[in-house]
Amino acid sequence: MDYRTLLATLVCLSIAGAAPETYKDAKPQRYDLKARASAIDPAAKEHPEISFVFGDAAKPQDQERACVDTRVPDQGKLVIWLMGHNQGLFEHVSGYGLHAIQVHYANGWFSKLYSGKPPEDDLFLSKIRLEAATGEDSSKEVAIPKPDSIMGRSLEFVKWLDKENPQGRWQQFLTKDGKDLQWDKVILAGISHGSTTAARMAKQVKVDRVVMFSGPRDQYEAWQALPSATPANRYFGFTHVLDDGWSGDHYCRSWQMLKLQDYGPVVNVENTPFPYGNSRRLVTDADVKKDPKRAHGAVVPGGSAPKDGAGKYSHEEVWKYLFTHPVEETGKAVPADPDCRMDQRK
């Protein structure tokens, strides 16, 4: 066993309450798989009115990706990533013993349906996000059926993966009749628009946890305060303080409406060591050249993510915490921040 595999195994074994299982794979390795949604499911359709299209063979827009590492004990959790593919992130979460998929879903509708002044309906975006997530008729603004929703495309992708990559044990995420995913084994994660949709979806569908990078936003909406199928201690957020969603009080507003203050204060990971007081609200002020756009993407693996002097990502422990920290371990409740502007319509 090489050093990296040993380290990943120790990380997995450190996750409280986990019962890791080994894979039956003659050649243990990390599998990176991909397939087009339109090729997987004949029922999948385009919705050009909201920029939800397949593209073509030269420039496919409906490519979906998956990752699993059979060298690492299986934690029995499936990460569904709701944004463009991030190979670095997939390599990290697969190293924790998690499965990961990125699905093609309707996320380009802002310019088509929403601009200018906020609509009077404070659940306007909520209804659109919910329909995109579940395929249920929630909004009069869009018509997204189940095969084109996050839930529908995730199901078909996992069914395809089960056949294509049996070494990866994807079947464990399907119900016995194969007609749905076992959502209590799912970690919804995303950045920006994707983190907002992940949080909205988790209000409706009970999942294992939600990992919210640079979000949620929807600063004129009220859905963040709705009853939640997913308990509040299972929501984890991480953002940069120079991100305009943070400086504009959009993220702190959502976090407080989600009641994350019940599980600890806002913690700066640069001056508070792991496990960050077991808080659900993590921020960083790492150097991003004073660039808010760079700050927005700096919280996930990639070109703008800060690194230490040895070239290693500075937030390795933060990412591990977000995806694997035992949900029962929480920080102490604190009062809501009176300086966070909760009414963004004024």
Rank of each mutant, 00 (worst) to 15 (best):
D2M: 05
Y3W: 12
V11F: 14
L13I: 04
A16K: 13
A19G: 13
E21W: 04
T22N: 13
R30I: 13
A35L: 12
R36M: 07
R36F: 02
R36D: 03
A37D: 02
S38G: 05
A39D: 15
P42K: 11
A43P: 01
A43W: 00
A43V: 02
K45Y: 02
K45G: 13
P48W: 02
S51V: 08
D56T: 05
A57L: 04
A57T: 00
P60K: 07
D62T: 00
Q63R: 06
R65C: 10
A66D: 05
T70M: 09
R71T: 13
V72N: 03
P73V: 12
P73G: 14
D74Y: 00
D74W: 02
G76P: 01
V79I: 03
W81I: 03
H85P: 06
N86E: 08
N86W: 00
G88C: 10
L89S: 04
F90Q: 04
E91N: 14
E91R: 11
H92T: 06
S94I: 04
G95K: 08
G97P: 05
L98H: 02
H99R: 03
I101A: 11
Q102V: 06
G108I: 02
G108R: 12
K112V: 04
K112S: 10
Y114M: 14
G116C: 08
K117T: 08
D121F: 02
D122N: 14
S126M: 03
S126P: 01
K127M: 14
I128W: 01
R129P: 00
E131V: 10
E131Q: 15
A133W: 02
A133E: 02
V142S: 04
V142D: 03
P145E: 05
K146I: 07
D148R: 05
M151V: 06
R153Q: 07
S154D: 04
S154F: 08
V158E: 09
D162Y: 03
P166G: 11
L174Q: 08
T175L: 12
D177Q: 09
W183H: 08
K185N: 09
K185L: 14
V186D: 00
A189N: 07
S192F: 00
A198E: 03
M201H: 09
V205I: 15
K206A: 15
K206R: 15
V210K: 01
V210I: 11
V210E: 00
V210T: 01
S214G: 14
G215W: 01
E221L: 14
W223F: 09
S228I: 07
S228F: 05
A229P: 12
A229D: 10
A229N: 13
T230H: 10
P231N: 13
A232R: 13
F236H: 04
G237M: 11
F238M: 12
H240Y: 09
H240I: 09
D243G: 12
S247A: 13
H250R: 10
Y251D: 00
W255A: 10
L258M: 15
D262M: 13
G264M: 05
G264W: 00
G264V: 07
V267Q: 06
P273M: 03
F274D: 09
P275E: 03
G277Q: 06
N278I: 00
R281Q: 14
R281A: 06
A286Q: 02
D287Y: 09
D287M: 10
D291Q: 10
P292K: 03
V299R: 04
K307P: 05
G309K: 03
S314T: 08
S314L: 15
E316C: 11
K320N: 12
Y321N: 07
P326Q: 09
P338K: 14
D339F: 05
R341H: 05
Q344C: 04
R345H: 10
